[in-house]
């Protein structure tokens, strides 16, 4: 078994000929959602399944994840915290703001927050950033996985309010939640177009990649804000 850091805070653990994606467990001894714990050179790692996490799938698709150990991350669509827990692992000196709209899933997310020191839970609608602008600071990274028909707009309003000029937007677009019957590649094209032109805050797409076979009909995107011309 040996360990290879492929991006800051993200590791590839080799075990018996298999490569396993993992993050360093910030809460050693316990797992969050039944994932395997891997011991190596006195460090404990948590296996990170790309089929359960869009962010992990983006990593395996060789998309560069701009999260550093001291990053400030806004996570929209935190759900019950599967991916958030790995982001939390990646931020020993940073903080992640986890926004989730459903009280039911927030119940589980809060239990995760109780065991971690760097997650700020926010029960709010991600399409209305003004409702949590008194909590969230300027962030380095926005990660968004909301599966809403207006997800491009949600990304734009949040980036306008919270994303630093040189910050990155990581976005997972689910074609099926925009149009259940249309051809996914057409939906992706339209969504990319919206991000580039439609809203006050516009984006330059740095990289995009289909997330199949980990997630069908999902597109992963990395983008930066276009600087506004004055």
């Amino acid at each position: 078994m040996d360990v290879n850091e492929i991006s800051e805070g993200i590791f590839e653990v080799r075990k018996g000929g298999k490569k396993i994606l993992a993050t360093k467990n910030a809460n050693p001894g316990s797992n969050v959602y039944g994932e395997n714990l891997l011991e190596e050179e006195g460090e404990e790692y948590r296996a990170w399944d790309a089929r359960r996490s869009k962010l992990a799938a983006m990593v395996l698709k060789k998309m560069k994840v701009p999260i550093k150990s001291d990053s400030r991350v806004l996570y929209l669509g935190a759900a019950s915290g599967t991916t958030v827990s790995h982001v939390s692992d990646m931020l020993p000196n940073g903080i992640v703001y986890a926004v989730e709209f459903s009280p039911r899933t927030m119940r589980e997310l809060i239990q995760l927050c109780d065991t971690r020191s760097n997650i700020v839970p926010i029960l709010a609608d991600a399409s209305r950033p003004k409702l949590y602008a008194h909590i969230v600071e300027q962030v380095d990274v926005i990660f968004q996985d909301v599966a809403q028909p207006n997800q491009a707009q949600i990304a734009a309003v949040n980036a306008e309010q919270f994303l630093k000029e040189d910050g990155h937007l990581l976005l997972s677009i689910k074609a099926r939640s925009i149009d259940t019957v249309a051809n996914p590649s057409k939906v992706f094209k339209e969504e990319v177009n919206k991000l580039e032109k439609d809203f006050d805050t516009q984006f330059n797409i740095i990289k995009k990649h289909d997330l199949a076979p980990f997630h069908e009909d999902h597109l992963g995107l990395v983008a930066k804000k276009k600087l506004k011309e004055n």
């Binding site: 903080i95 009280p103 927030m106 119940r107 809060i110 927050c113 109780d114 020191s117 760097n118 997650i119 700020v120 839970p121 926010i122 029960l123 909590i135």
Partner: peptide, 20 residues
């Protein structure tokens, strides 16, 4: 800042949930 904000947010989210 981090630890205070975290404690406050967790408390607030718990309040919100009990009110739903």
């Amino acid at each position: 800042y981090n630890s205070l904000l975290r404690d406050v947010s967790i408390r607030a989210a718990k309040l919100q949930i009990s009110r739903t």
